[in-house]
Each structure stands twice: as structure tokens, then as C-alpha cells.
Write a protein that binds this DNA or RNA. Structure first.
Lengths: 331, 331
DNA sequence: TTGTAAGCGTTATCAC
DNA sequence: GTGATAACGCTTACAA
């Protein structure tokens, strides 16, 4: 553990090296300079433990090398994973991550955006369903999972295709009637397309399909009721369930087992997200979001040179992965 | 979604309001100023959509309102949770979080510390087992789970006490012989005390206790071998297992079941961390780390006014929580 | 190629 | 209480 002296400035380095201030600056920025000088400056810098003051630098250049990430939390596995990747990708692009967790509180979201702008970040990546985002026209902004306008690029998984894929898989695995389950207050983001894709596939393929929106008041009763009302020969009729998230799927599987139904024998369940338990095993069969790809894409778009022609919406392909809650051969 | 005009400066506001530059500065910093002036300035600022440039401000004041958090990742539930709390607590203290994930790579850790210092952060909170941290003497530093020297405050859970508690609980719940399991390369952090506490309790209470360090080469063989070698009447002799982390505990439980042993009937398992699955249910019976308290404490120490007398090591109390892998009455 | 000097947007120190 | 003015540490013409 080494300790270094404090706060030497370029002026100090210049004096130490016996060169002009501008020369030091050039060395620090890799601008061609006499080899002899370069060495002198580098030695002086090392000796004094000099580090550029990026605030002074940022003030001049308006480039801070910081990108703000605004996200509901970092403790939910999906957000944690996404944050992790974004942070890593930004690092490889020479950028730092300013993290702001908002708990999806709109006021907080706007506050964080304001703060980010004050800090002159190079751009903002945000995951919010806030309809009244107050964004500065000229700080690059990329939204994840939420389409605002053509002027704000949005990156998301192919939620619609994922919904279709879930339906297709469930039928392929033997389910004749399908159920879609979703929980929580209605939002207006890309994830809503999971339901749309699911339903459209069923319609197109003439597969009976029912949709249940769970809410906080009724709890799981609508689900219980539906299952009880649709029984045939003592077995549930709807044997394929698609849940809007893995989280919900895990809960539903538990509920089903409590009801004496076995998963995947009696009923098959597919979730959405593709999260892994921390022993690297899937929570459930799931439509896997390409989280790493989403992170890369978001960063690429945010930092792209030519901001005049950006894709308004980028949907990245999802995949299906068995995870024990479906009757796959190889599961 | 509103859009604002770009980059007005204090000078612009001053001109717009018809006052001097200094007056604007005072208004922005809540320094007493004529009521009439204050109103004029505030209106002008709003009209122009003015926001302070914190880089210019930081250059002057050397206060950036940013704290760096250096952590292996944010995708592991424990780190995710910790990051979440730290970010929240910092926010309530008027600080922003600069996040750096290192994957515990030492080079990366030092690089991140260097970058943080360049960004003139108010302080650094780091979770690293890096022995050669290159830290600047005069940027406040708080370490989590790793004691360096008396000069660097360290915040951790009471790992030693947690180890004792685990042993005590296992015996209380009926185990006569105890096993400690730990995996991975040896580190030199506070978490090592889990083992020490566990052993010391056993010694003090004359309870037979065996320790196994799993490593990558041998895999779980040492564990299997030990279990096989210590059987009595067809039942394992060591019926209480303490794992150094919840993650390991989850794996061990799985292995035990594969061996035909049932948990918690045949063998009881306690982990460490107290993590919750994302459906808010514990992974296993566990010694719970006070993560939120750790976050608060780390931030408090980092930002404390008087840095002359700081606690070198703060160990926060842990608790035991049943989680289905022990034979607790109420589990 | 190297050195000089003018700002970048703030804050802080003064006279007023 | 208010308003010029000099820094803060750096980049970048531009002059040498």
C-alpha cells in the first residue's frame, strides 16, 4: 500500500521538469513533443505523483468521460446484471459510470437527470417509465425498455418476439390452452409487448389463450379462480403458462405446487428475463434477454459519433432456455 | 417530456436579470441577497434553464459531491444489495455515486482508484482484497470487509461473532459434530473470521469440529470423502454444516440431496450473508449481514467531519435467520 | 517544436 | 448588500 503526495498541478510538473506549462499538457495528452522533453516531463510527473485534474480539464473541453446510468435499483437481479454490463462496457470505452438509483420514483428520476446534466456527463442511459422526463436536448440520451419519441433512441429486447416464442414453445411442449400472467400496475414500456406477442401468436395459430392481469388488491385470486373454473377430468385445462417475468414465474410455480399441481408434469411455466440463480442455475424456463448485448448496444448508440441518424428503437433477439419448469427433453 | 435550451452560463443569467455575476452566484448558493434581486435572478435562471456547471464549481471549491464506489461486481446479490444501499445513502447525503466494477482484478482496482482521484471525488468506498492499494493519503477512504491499517477505516459485519453464532445455533438445533466449509482461493479479509469464530466456539464448548477448505482442483471430493468416512449407523456423524457463504450453502444443500441425504432432517446447513431470493424468500438458513447498516456506517465514516479520530475497524452485529435448511421450530 | 497567454464557468475577496 | 476582479488547473491557438 503506497501513499502519494497530494495535489501537484501541471505548473509544479513544469517547474520540476524545467519546461513550459503547455509542454506538460501536450505530454499528458499524447501530443507530439520532443523525446527529450517527454521523458523529463514524465519523470517529473511520476516523481510528484501528478494526476490531471479532470474538473479543470472538463471545464475546458466539455468532456468529462462520465456517463450517467439512471435505473430503478441495482438489487433486482436483472437491473444488477444490466448495470454490471453497462459499467464494464463503459469502462472499455474509456468512460466512467455515475450511478443513480431511483426506485422508479418520478421526482427522483428527474432530479437525477438534472444532477447528471450539471455534472456535464457525456450522456445518460436511463431505465424509467416516467412519461415526463425532463431531458436536455443536447445531452445524448438512450432509453432502455421504454420508447419515448423518435428523438430518443430506445434499446430493448425483442419483447414481442419473446412473447411469440413463449407461446410457440409451450404448444410445442404439449400445452393445448395457454395462459398469460402479468402483475403490477400497468406501465407503458416495451415489456408490455410480451403480452401482445403472446396473444398474437395464439390468435394466428388458433390456440386458446387467456390473459390475467394480477393486481395488488385481488392478489392471486383471479388466477386461482380461473384455474378452478377450467378443469377437465380433474386436470387443469390450461397447461401452459407464460409469466411476464421470471420473478412472477417463480411465485406462480410455488403457488401451483401449493395447489397440489406438479410443475412441469401437470402445468408448464415459462418466465421472461432469463435470470440465473446465484449458483448459476436458471430460476425457471424462460425467454432470455440478451442483457450483455443490450448494454453494448445502449453504450454504442449513446457514444456514436454521428447522432443525426440513430435507430429510434433497437430490439435485440431473445432466446428460449429450459429451466426445469417445462417438459423439455434436455432440461 | 420537456426540452431545455442549452448551456446558459451565470454570465447569461446575470445579463438577463440585469445584475452582477457575483450576485447570481450568491443566489445559487443561498447566500443572503436582496429579496428583489433574488427574485430577478431566479426568474432569469428559470427562463434560461440555467444549471450550475459543477465542473467549474468543482474546480474552484474542490468539492464535487461525488463518492467513488469500487466493488468487484454488482451482479452478485450481496454486492448488488450493498451498492444499492450505498447509492441510496449517499444520495440522502447529497452525494452522487461513481461506480466502478473491478471483478477483483488488482490492476483494475488501482486503475479505478486513480481515475476516482482524478475526478476529485470526495472519498472512496472500496471492497477489495488487493494488498497493494495505491491510495492518496488525502482522499478519504473507507474499506469494506478488508482491514488494511489503522489509517484506513474498515467496516464489516461481525464475522467472528457470526461464526460463533452459527456453531451455537447448529448445536442448539441438535447437531453433535460440526463441519465448516469454505471455498475458493484464500483471501485476507474480515470474512476469514467466520471460520475463526466458528472454531473457537466449538473449542470452547468442546464440540467436535472439522474444517474443509474446498479448492478448484479437488472440487467437492474432500467433502464427499469426509462425509463418507464419518458415518455411524448408516447416518452421517457430522450433522451440522456451516458454509462460509450462502452461495456455497446452496450448492452444498444440492450436493447433499444428490447424495440421498435430506436437509434439514439428516443434515442441517447454515450459510452466511442472509441473502434473499428475488421472491423475497431466504436461500437457506443463514447468518444475516446488516447490509444496510454497513452501507450507512461506511458513508458516515467517509463523510465524517473530524477525520482525526476514526474507528479503525467497525464490526456490525449479525443475526441468525432460519431459512429451511435447519430444523427450527418456526422455519 | 516550444513557450506564452487567453479563457472555460465558478467562487471569493475586496472595495463600494 | 452589491459588483468588479482575481484566481482555480487546464487546453489551445498563436507567437517565437
Amino acid at each position: 500500500m503506497k501513499a502519494k503526495r497530494s495535489n501537484p498541478t501541471m505548473k509544479d510538473v513544469a517547474r520540476e521538469a524545467g519546461v513550459a506549462l503547455g509542454t506538460v499538457s501536450k505530454v499528458m495528452n499524447n501530443i507530439p513533443v520532443g523525446a527529450e522533453y517527454r521523458v523529463r516531463v514524465e519523470e517529473a510527473a511520476k516523481k510528484l505523483g501528478y494526476q490531471v485534474n479532470s474538473y479543470a480539464k472538463g471545464l475546458k473541453t466539455n468532456h468529462t468521460g462520465i456517463v450517467a446510468l439512471i435505473i430503478p435499483s441495482v438489487r433486482h437481479p436483472f437491473f444488477g446484471l444490466l448495470t454490471d454490463y453497462i459499467c464494464q462496457v463503459l469502462m472499455t470505452r474509456g468512460m466512467r459510470t455515475l450511478l443513480a438509483t431511483t426506485e422508479s420514483d418520478m421526482e427522483m428520476e428527474n432530479k437525477c437527470i438534472r444532477l447528471a446534466q450539471q455534472h456535464k456527463v457525456e450522456g445518460i442511459i436511463a431505465l424509467t417509465y416516467n412519461p415526463n422526463i425532463e431531458m436536455d436536448e443536447d445531452v445524448p440520451f438512450v432509453s432502455i425498455d421504454r420508447f419515448y419519441t423518435n428523438r430518443v433512441p430506445c434499446v430493448a429486447a425483442d419483447n414481442y418476439g419473446g412473447g411469440q416464442l413463449a407461446a410457440e414453445k409451450l404448444v410445442e411442449l404439449g400445452a393445448r390452452k395457454l395462459l398469460f400472467l402479468r402483475i403490477g400496475s400497468s406501465v407503458i414500456g416495451e415489456p408490455d409487448k410480451r403480452e401482445a406477442g403472446f396473444e398474437s401468436w395464439c390468435q394466428l395459430n388458433k390456440v386458446p389463450c387467456h390473459v390475467i392481469h394480477l393486481n395488488d388488491e385481488d392478489g392471486f385470486n383471479p388466477f386461482y379462480d380461473f384455474l378452478r373454473d377450467h378443469v377437465r377430468d380433474g386436470r387443469p385445462e390450461y397447461t401452459g403458462i407464460f409469466c411476464s417475468t421470471d420473478q412472477l414465474a417463480v411465485i406462480i410455480v410455488k403457488k401451483l405446487k401449493e395447489m397440489g399441481l406438479s410443475v412441469p408434469e401437470d402445468v408448464q411455466v415459462i418466465g421472461f428475463d432469463g435470470l440465473m440463480n446465484f449458483d448459476e442455475t436458471p430460476y425457471c424456463s424462460s425467454i432470455v434477454q440478451p442483457v450483455e448485448k443490450m448494454a453494448e448496444t445502449a453504450v454504442d448508440i449513446l457514444l456514436s459519433e454521428d447522432r443525426s441518424k440513430l435507430p429510434a428503437l433497437t430490439c435485440l433477439p431473445v432466446t428460449y432456455r429450459p429451466g426445469g419448469t417445462t417438459r423439455d427433453n434436455e432440461a
